[in-house]
Design a protein around this nucleic acid. Structure first.
Lengths: 147, 147
DNA sequence: CCTTGACTTAAAGTGAACTTTAGATTGTAT
DNA sequence: ATACAATCTAAAGTTCACTTTAAGTCAAGG
């Protein structure tokens, strides 16, 4: 049950001191205590809140939506469904994101292959001219497991 | 070899007219032609450029970096290595992003499970109090394939 | 020729997520 | 007690990726 200053909290979370203050100003950290003099004191349990915030943030949830979630948490048991639904929706969003990234990865792999050919030949020489044919060749090679 | 007006190009790409103009102003579309009167004319091949731009953008590359890539393309064969390296780096970044998203997904799945329990019981009742023990139970259930 | 709708540029505005600044206060070490 | 680092708040500034506005130009139909 130790207390942490804002700079210690920053170090523990990898956020900056001003980011923590900003999050608090946006209502994301209503649970953080203060000393009699007004300085923030972070408790051990606060870091699990920060970990959830970090998870949501790094999976693309806006500050506003995270605040909504925190507000629901503070409201108590009447918001359990909303909170569950939030995570269900977020699961879908993250899965869609992963799918999109995986599609991008395929295009990127094609480009790497394309540029490796070109670097080996020292020139793009006409490759760009009939890109469709080139992509078809790449697809064929992939299908055959040659790349 | 048809020509497309900016609004037709917008429709084909799903971007807005002003986004296309913005991209051009940032140097992303140096290949787009103009009529004698100064209006943009998009060619069929321009859309494969736009498709690469879209791929890079949606995998998190900044406009500035995309411009760098386009500049390299315009420079010719002397930049083949840089372009290959860009895609190799980008592959790593996207793979890291996917890995992070997958980790987030695990946390989100835990939260869904957590809130389903709570909704069923109608209360969080002490769940938050000993979160560690609860997470351990979740881990055990997962290991046993029960969730 | 003239109207009308789509196009043009340059510049200002927007929203998100911080970051920086300025000036005041707090806590601690000597 | 005093110095000094760390903290505080409020407000302004920054960056990114657009979007909107204003004022003007182009192109096709009647």
């Amino acid at each position: 049950m130790t207390g942490y200053s804002i700079s210690q909290a920053a170090e523990k979370t990898g956020l900056t001191v001003s980011t923590l203050r900003y999050y608090e100003s946006e209502g994301l950290l209503p649970f953080v205590d203060r000393t009699s003099g007004g300085q923030r004191v972070f408790k051990d349990e606060d870091f699990s809140w920060l970990s959830v915030i970090e998870c949501l943030k790094s999976s693309g949830v806006s500050i506003r939506e995270i605040k909504q979630y925190i507000d629901w948490c503070m409201e108590g048991d009447s918001t359990l469904c909303q909170r569950r639904d939030l995570f269900v929706r977020q699961k879908e969003r993250v899965e869609a994101q992963i799918a999109e990234y995986q599609k991008n990865l395929e295009k990127i792999n094609y480009k790497i292959w394309y540029y490796e050919q070109a670097v080996a030949r020292g020139t793009e020489g006409g490759q760009t001219a009939n890109c469709a044919a080139f992509e078809a060749e790449y697809a064929r090679l992939r299908a055959e497991g040659n790349v």
